[in-house]
């Protein structure tokens, strides 16, 4: 197994470059010397157990968290107000305002992004079965998760960051949503970095995978090649790595 987290793939289509990223909180080292690249038009699975640094990595890329050391470049620019226009971030937690309806939430978020796609919005609203007139405070955990997906996937942002997007959504709906992700993004140059625990359901959509453990990248590469190399599914490999 490749233990190196120093390897940087090269290519002309690099959208996101993370160099030797470390993040230390008061009592814990969340990320250690993580280096990676994400290319345009790829779906990358960010996998690892709780506390492995997945959310911290996504927050650093989204510009919501400052690295202790290392650098991040999105289309050549460090995280800031300009890169926030290029990144659609779906957080793990529920950031929605309970007093808004789903429609008000969509209209609020939509007004800040020029890349909002009304066609995508209508399509995902239908797939996710979100009632626009429903107040957020009356929504179940799963319904809120669906609304968060609408907010993220309705944008034509070059980089989509999703932190546990399927959390709280019932299993029968997950495959529909994953199919929607594949159909919406397969023909575009948009790149997706998706952190999830639901590996068995999501692994079919991954072009590449990154295994994180205790803040370090333990394995990174093409999903198909890894399956062949280890003669195992990503789910099986994940269980082996973190056993």
């Amino acid at each position: 197994m490749n233990e190196s987290n120093q390897a940087v793939e090269t290519g002309d289509e690099v959208l996101l470059r993370v160099e030797h990223l470390s993040k230390r909180y008061l009592r814990a080292q969340a990320l250690k010397d993580a280096t990676l690249e994400i290319r345009k038009g790829t779906v990358t699975g960010l996998l690892g157990p709780n506390g492995s640094g997945k959310s911290t990595l996504l927050k650093c890329i989204a510009g919501l968290c400052r690295p202790s050391s290392g650098r991040i470049f999105i289309n050549g620019r460090a995280p800031g107000i300009h890169t926030k226009r290029q990144v659609a971030y779906l957080p793990e937690v529920d950031p929605l305002y309970p007093w808004m309806t789903a429609r008000q939430t969509i209209e609020f978020v939509k007004s800040f992004y020029d890349d909002w796609d009304d066609r995508k919005e209508a399509n995902i609203l239908e797939i996710a079965k979100v009632d626009p007139s429903m107040p957020v405070r009356a929504m179940s955990k799963g319904q809120k998760a669906r609304l968060r997906l609408v907010l993220t996937m309705s944008r034509n942002a070059p980089l989509i960051l999703m932190d546990e997007p399927l959390s709280g959504i019932d299993p029968p709906s997950r495959s529909k949503i994953l199919n929607a992700i594949v159909s919406e993004y397969s023909e575009t140059e948009q790149a997706i970095l998706l952190a999830t625990h639901e590996v068995s359901e999501a692994e079919s959509i991954f072009d590449r995978v990154i295994f994180l453990h205790e803040g370090q990248i333990r394995l990174m590469g093409d999903a198909e090649e890894i399956r062949k190399q280890y003669n195992s599914s990503i789910q099986g490999l994940l269980e082996e790595v973190y056993a």
Partner: peptide, 14 residues
């Protein structure tokens, strides 16, 4: 407290 900062700080505004 409501985790809304994830949304607000993600907006491309000063």
């Amino acid at each position: 407290e409501g985790n809304h900062l994830h949304l607000i700080l993600g907006l491309p505004v000063r």
